[in-house]
Design a protein around this nucleic acid. Sequence first.
DNA 1: CTGAAAGCGCTAACAA
DNA 2: TTGTTAGCGCTTTCAG
Lengths: 399, 399
Amino acid sequence: MKPRRKRSQATPGKMDIRGVAALARVSIATVSRTINHVPTVDPTLAARVWKAVQELNYLPNTQARALVSGRSRLIGLIVSEITNPFFPELIQEFEQAAVARGYEILIGSTNYETQTMEVCARRMLERKVDGVAVMTFGFEDFFLDRFAAENIPYVFIDPAPSRPLNSVLAVNYLTGISEGVQHLAVLGHRNIAFISGPLNRRSAISRKEAFLSCLHSIGLKPNPDWLIEGDHTLDGGRDAMQKLLAQPNWPTAIMCSNDMTAIGVQHAVFEADLRIPDDFSVIGFDDIHLTEYTIPPLTTIRMSCRDLAARAMENLLSRGKTIAGTAPSAASAAPPPAAPNKSTFRPNQPSATITTHLIVRRTTGLPRKALQDLRQDPSSQTQPQQPPRNSRQRGSVQE
Amino acid sequence: MKPRRKRSQATPGKMDIRGVAALARVSIATVSRTINHVPTVDPTLAARVWKAVQELNYLPNTQARALVSGRSRLIGLIVSEITNPFFPELIQEFEQAAVARGYEILIGSTNYETQTMEVCARRMLERKVDGVAVMTFGFEDFFLDRFAAENIPYVFIDPAPSRPLNSVLAVNYLTGISEGVQHLAVLGHRNIAFISGPLNRRSAISRKEAFLSCLHSIGLKPNPDWLIEGDHTLDGGRDAMQKLLAQPNWPTAIMCSNDMTAIGVQHAVFEADLRIPDDFSVIGFDDIHLTEYTIPPLTTIRMSCRDLAARAMENLLSRGKTIAGTAPSAASAAPPPAAPNKSTFRPNQPSATITTHLIVRRTTGLPRKALQDLRQDPSSQTQPQQPPRNSRQRGSVQE
DNA sequence: CTGAAAGCGCTAACAA
DNA sequence: TTGTTAGCGCTTTCAG
């Protein structure tokens, strides 16, 4: 039976390890060792190999490597909605961290749909990712189990770990939210609403609970009518605010479960011809870059996505098959670029905690009533225009 | 020499094609044919195979498939800055299109740096992507050539094709920009500024040139001081507007090379205590979702990223090795899910043209001067409040 | 229509 | 230290 094709027919443009070996007059094993930075290679031979690599413009075939080594050098990254600017910022960090270590990231968006989650999980499994970072809430435990079953390390965000500790990225919502609530309280707000994320899953509730507990701790009790469920989107924020505006009693401040919601709120307030922060103070969550640019710039709670990404990658890689495998630095065809950067992270890191902090910008201020009081108390003098409520004339109406 | 490990040691949880074959009492070849939907498989055997697949929860190993077939089912997607919301919207479309056809996408952001472009190109090459969509301007021709050399289909955006036609996605900027300029002209604007993208590369100039040519065609000549170079970011837009504001003469309208720039402009105007559209009309470009939510909502030029993504994928896949390869639908372990969806796109599609259109929202209006004229001409009657200019009282100044 | 077997390009035992 | 060689899991001839 004749072989399908003679091995390594010197096909131009499709250089493989054999071609390099031939040109360098060494065995393919030596080539492999060289490009993998195995230290026991004779420098003379190594030099010849690198020369051949450059000359032939050789790039190792990742598929083959993955097949034999069992490690794909692919990290899965599951987010809820890539369209929410928080995630691109996160993805950017992931990309950098991954590429720096010779990995690629595989992105999957769940769009909050169980069906899509399943597809994402399957994709990750099929591509044999070396680890998965689940950066969204409400990812069904069931799918997490599948990763566990395949022995794929995963990390996910959870305020109340129900899982192996080393796979949890704990986010300390409380700090930031409590700073936010106190900030509002100090300004004089007593009527604070909260627009949550999608509440259909267990963990999406945590920011809301953090809010409730902060409220309680400063002696305020929540008005159930002011606890609105949003969905972390612009539209959701706008709709939620419209619901609030439709009620007979209005809060004076609104905390939002994320920045997109807050931007939606700003829009709704603008459409209603009301003003921020005069009529309502609003606070977001995430501190996406855009918040510096909203009108007015949004007061929000910062959660460092750089930290999040770094911690997640660190955690994943430190638990991977790396220990038994090759050096973390890929061959890539970069000659001897300083020493391979191994072991820069700790062995079996437990859960990391990401903290959150309030960033005050310009959507928070004194509540209207306080402003009026300020004006009325000092002894009731004539109030020239009694302006505040609804009195503002907009320049030119353009509809 | 003893083999490293007996083949298929019935390792639980790590099911391979052999396991399926054993359970189904057929050869691995039959399993392969079945899951690849080769039509000549005996239905009885096929049924047994699918049953085994389900029972074992078998997922074909993508790496192995890729290695032997030479096709990775990976599509590269190169963008400039994932942090610009236009791209996530684009990526979302790509992800859907890719996954639907059994592909994954590999994302690379160049951040406009040549160095990073090189890394991106290398990553794509190493992972042996089946095609690359270059959705950013200024990607060096040099790297494009490498793809060509490796016989990897690529598409990129270019208004003036300097490359094989079938790899160009032509975007018709002129339509949208001309609609924008005319819209402004009709409103009475004669002094129109343009904030471009980064001009350091050939093709980034095209939107600007489109603008210039539109200006010319309605008999206006550009003021060089009002042609500012931005960089397609929020910060860049703000800075550019500040430069404009520092000049002795102000334009009455500003067109921006993308939406982020326009949002930066809105911010700068806000900071300067001026108003849009009263003091300046502004028009963006891209029509990202966010533009509906800016304050006020941004008039912009829509370029359908859904179209862009669809066209790019279509183009890439139709040119790929698919023709000689297997059916486009992956095995994935989906039994007989209706007929495999083959040949839904045309064979060797030439360049596609994406059109652009003006979306009028609320950042464009009459220029100040026109407003004043309106008021003064009709016969100078008492003007009760002379409201427009700066007259609007802002609720409370919050600095 | 089915099964046996030859590799895809590479890594990792093992032998030398 | 270096070379030889056996597969990684799969697709695809080719012979039955």
